[in-house]
Simulated assay, not measured.
Amino acid sequence: MTNLGTSLWLQPPRNSPIWQQLATTIQGLKPIFSDSENFEPHITLTSNISVNTQGQVDFVLDRAVAAAKCVPQGFQIHLSSVKYGSRFFKKVYLQVEPTPELLSLARICREDFVYMPEAMSQARNYQAMSAEERQKIDTQVGQRAAEWTRNEYDPHVSLVYSDLYPVEDADRRTIETRLEDTFGSGYDESGLGWKNGRFALVRCEGPVDEWEVLGVRDF
């Protein structure tokens, strides 16, 4: 298992039907995997955020809300078909449509909360730099975040965390039957998803049951 540092999650509205369906599915699939964990439904926007104070937690959450509210029609998440992978955190998951709005939000979060703090800490004195020097760093950080979003970011909603691999065909059939029972036949083409929701800043270090929610914002 890999420590993810502190991660920013985008979650369905608390106690909404889709929240309940996803949470029930995560819990219901645990018996299929002997090492599976329970966790809240979410899309990770970025990991490796460094926060040490409540003020930093508030900054991240407030900035994320401000970015999401720039979408005038509301922030829409679209889920599609179930996928299977080899990694612990992407064993069984629902793919999320990489809409321009979602990719833009992930890029902003990666830039503002990961790459910019790194660049500022590596600079000898960022605030004392000339405007031209700061602009050069800002441009490099923006380009790095755009490249990460283009080449590495893969939005999804995990349903199972597990080291077991591969997922056997019989287990796949069981999983897909349960998903259809929960979400309905053809759920992957029926517009499954949610609008707006909640940001959660979560310290993802150590065992999953020891992860700590540092703060949340509904939007």
Results as ranks from 00 to 15, higher is better:
3 N>E: 15
4 L>V: 00
11 Q>M: 09
11 Q>N: 00
19 W>A: 12
20 Q>I: 11
24 T>L: 14
31 P>E: 10
32 I>C: 00
38 N>V: 13
41 P>G: 07
48 N>I: 10
54 Q>G: 02
54 Q>R: 07
54 Q>M: 08
57 V>Y: 02
58 D>I: 02
59 F>C: 08
59 F>R: 14
62 D>N: 15
63 R>D: 14
64 A>G: 01
66 A>Y: 05
69 K>Y: 05
72 P>V: 13
74 G>I: 00
78 H>I: 14
79 L>Q: 06
80 S>A: 14
83 K>S: 12
87 R>S: 15
88 F>Y: 15
91 K>P: 00
95 Q>T: 14
98 P>C: 06
100 P>I: 04
101 E>C: 07
102 L>W: 08
104 S>D: 13
105 L>N: 03
107 R>L: 13
109 C>Q: 06
110 R>A: 03
112 D>S: 06
119 A>N: 00
119 A>D: 02
120 M>Y: 03
123 A>G: 02
125 N>Q: 12
127 Q>R: 11
138 D>Y: 07
148 W>D: 11
149 T>M: 07
151 N>D: 13
152 E>D: 15
159 L>Q: 02
159 L>V: 01
163 D>F: 02
164 L>D: 08
165 Y>K: 08
171 D>M: 10
172 R>P: 02
172 R>T: 03
174 T>E: 13
174 T>F: 07
175 I>C: 13
175 I>M: 12
176 E>W: 04
180 E>L: 01
182 T>G: 05
183 F>I: 04
187 Y>N: 04
188 D>K: 12
189 E>G: 11
194 W>K: 04
195 K>M: 14
199 F>L: 08
201 L>N: 04
203 R>F: 08
203 R>T: 09
207 P>Y: 01
208 V>H: 02
214 L>G: 08
215 G>V: 03
215 G>C: 05
216 V>Y: 07
217 R>T: 11
